[in-house]
């Protein structure tokens, strides 16, 4: 293991958790990310090869999947964000490259994003005041790009009404966290 010590997007050695009545917001730096984009004319092969490798079908527009080891969210036409545990899969891009071969372009994205996991019955109340997504109509295993406090994010619904992840640009982790926590205080009665 190399000698450089990681810090979390919020600049800490350990991830931060904020608890409220009916809601918790947890910084999650433990997922590795890579974007996978099919090359022109290789869309079918790419989808087949990568789906077989990650053990679940690459999702369509607006959708996400969570498999045993890997998860994926649709981000653009023929383009996905693939995720796995950072421990053991820090080099997720290098894992995927040989799988996709000439059928796709793979780019490491782990540290482009900060991620906050939001769990609790007040989650819908929270997002209703943060972004224009119709969060109450959001199904489990869907993901959408949206804007929170002027920050472009992915809102990933893992369990409808209860369990979400927000992926935002890592450099704005502080601002994003501030927005989440401030509004959480407003929607969760003390």
């Amino acid at each position: 293991m190399h000698k450089l010590k990681a810090i979390t997007p919020l600049g800490r050695t350990e991830p931060k958790t904020d608890n409220f009545t009916g809601l918790s917001i947890t910084e999650n730096p433990a997922r590795a990310l890579a974007t996978l984009t099919a090359r022109l004319g290789h869309e079918t092969a790419c989808t087949a090869q990568v789906s077989a490798f990650i053990g679940c079908d690459l999702p369509g527009p607006g959708k996400s999947v969570v498999g045993e080891t890997y998860g994926a969210i649709w981000i653009a036409p023929s383009s996905w964000m693939i995720e796995a545990d950072h421990t053991g899969h820090e080099l997720i891009a290098q894992e995927l490259k040989p799988v996709a071969g000439e059928t796709a372009s793979v780019v490491e994205q782990t540290d482009a994003w900060c991620r906050f996991d939001i769990t609790g019955s007040a989650a819908d109340d929270l997002f209703e005041r943060l972004c224009n997504v119709d969060v109450r109509a959001m199904n489990s295993d869907t993901a959408t790009r949206t804007t929170i406090h002027h920050i472009g994010c992915y809102l990933w619904c893992r369990k409808a009404g209860f369990e979400y992840s927000v992926l935002g640009p890592r450099s704005s982790a502080g601002s994003l966290h501030h927005a989440l926590v401030e509004v959480a205080q407003a929607v969760c009665p003390v």
């Binding site: 527009p61 607006g62 036409p77 224009n132 959408t144 790009r145 949206t146 804007t147």
Partner: peptide, 11 residues
């Protein structure tokens, strides 16, 4: 065409 109705603010 792929994502359904979206607010023009996103564009």
């Amino acid at each position: 065409p792929l994502l359904g109705p979206r607010d023009a603010q996103e564009f």
